[in-house]
Amino acid sequence: MQKKTTSLPIIHATLATLLLSLAIPVLAHEGGTSTSPKDNVTIQDSPAEIGIEFNGMMRITQFEVTGPDGPVPLGGQPEGDQVERYFVKPSDILSAGEYQVSWRGLSDDGHMMSDGFNFSVDP
């Protein structure tokens, strides 16, 4: 007669936990933690700056703002440095309407990231 082994489920659970703990850092990427203006908010005046803060280092490769009159000229373009925050000033006062911000960059681990946010200016 063979003895039943009760340690096999414990070994499986331990291996599963170990594999999961190794995989979590692979899934974690830098992403935006806050934006200015805040996402989906309506502001009363043209913003002094538009930007985003990240939860890690990011090399911004593209940052665009589009509004009711088309692309918004910005007082600066990405310079290729790794940053934890990226903010630019609109070259002109923004008119009333809805604006979309889109960005793209390389996270610290080399993965391409992209996202965006929206805001509105109320007259």
Rank of each mutant, 00 (worst) to 15 (best):
P25V: 09
I24C: 04
I60W: 01
P25R: 13
L27H: 08
G32H: 02
A28V: 15
P47Q: 01
N55V: 13
M58H: 08
D45P: 00
T35R: 03
M58N: 07
A23L: 15
L22F: 10
G31R: 12
M57Q: 14
I50M: 06
D39C: 06
A28M: 07
I24A: 14
H29G: 11
S34Y: 09
I50A: 09
N55E: 04
R59A: 14
S46V: 03
S46G: 05
I60C: 10
T35P: 02
S46M: 04
G31S: 13
A48H: 10
K38V: 10
I43G: 11
A48Y: 05
P25Q: 13
S46Q: 09
T42C: 04
I52Q: 07
G31K: 12
E49F: 00
L27C: 14
N55L: 00
G56V: 06
S21A: 08
A48Q: 13
S21R: 04
G32V: 12
M57V: 09
I43R: 04
E53W: 02
G56I: 07
D45Q: 13
V26N: 01
V41A: 08
F54K: 11
A48I: 04
I52C: 05
I52F: 00
L22E: 01
I50H: 06
L20N: 09
L27T: 15
L22V: 13
E53N: 14
E30M: 10
G32A: 13
I60E: 09
G32L: 03
P37D: 04
L27G: 14
K38T: 12
I24N: 06
P47D: 06
E30K: 13
A48L: 11
V41L: 01
A23H: 02
R59W: 00
A23D: 04
V41K: 02
I60F: 04
L20F: 12
S46W: 00
G31D: 04
S34F: 08
T35E: 05
D45C: 00
N55Q: 08
G31N: 10
M57P: 07
R59L: 08
A28Q: 11
H29N: 15
S34D: 02
S21D: 01
D39K: 10
G56H: 01
L20P: 01
L22K: 10
K38Q: 10
S46K: 03
D39V: 03
H29E: 07
I50N: 06
S21E: 01
L22N: 03
